[in-house]
């Protein structure tokens, strides 16, 4: 049984997603919705990783990080920089790049959940199946939010002369 591998893949992907959301939210502080929702989604991604704590122990996988991503000093600095640059258009392309990268990371996490779910089903671990199902759905929502936000952001950045 190699469920521990699948758990580790999910945990890493969600923790990386949390960190990435945290950085991107701060870097685009002048985009107020990205800032607020980015932080909230970062906290949720970290919580999803943590939701596997008991299963990690059961299957001998690595223990997920127990802390929330901490906005801390770096966030304040990033947000202040973003607001100073708030009157410039160049960050538009950076916003697109960041949202795309984060979307890909969310997809990485999403497919990791799918893999784990398949394993859990085959091992008849119904508790794990249930935990994975709700987390997977929430992870998909994070990806959909990033997709929605990208679809709104892209035209203005790309089409304005």
């Amino acid at each position: 049984m190699k469920i521990d591998h699948a758990i580790n893949t999910v945990t890493e992907a969600e923790q990386d997603l949390a960190d990435q959301l945290e950085r991107v939210a701060g870097r685009h502080g002048a985009e107020h919705d990205v800032y607020h929702l980015g932080h909230k989604q970062a906290v949720k991604a970290a919580a999803r990783a943590r939701s596997l704590t008991d299963f990690a122990q059961k299957y001998g996988a690595d223990a997920p990080r127990q802390s929330d991503p901490d906005p801390g000093v770096m966030d304040t600095l990033r947000r202040q920089t973003s607001e100073l640059l708030g009157r410039a258009q160049a960050p538009g392309l950076i916003l697109l790049r960041d949202l795309q990268e984060t979307y890909l990371q969310a997809q990485r996490a999403e497919i990791a959940w799918v893999v784990l779910q398949q394993g859990a089903k085959a091992c008849r671990d119904l508790e794990l199946v249930e935990a994975v199902t709700s987390a997977h759905e929430e992870c998909e929502t994070t990806a959909k939010w990033l997709r929605t936000r990208l679809k709104v952001a892209a035209p203005q950045v790309l089409a304005v002369g």
């Binding site: 002048a30 107020h32 708030g86 009157r87 410039a88 258009q89 960050p91 203005q156 950045v157 304005v160």
Partner: peptide
């Protein structure tokens, strides 16, 4: 709010 953001960043 997004429109004002576009006006803020200059596009």
């Amino acid at each position: 709010m997004q429109m004002f953001r576009y006006a803020e960043e200059g596009s």
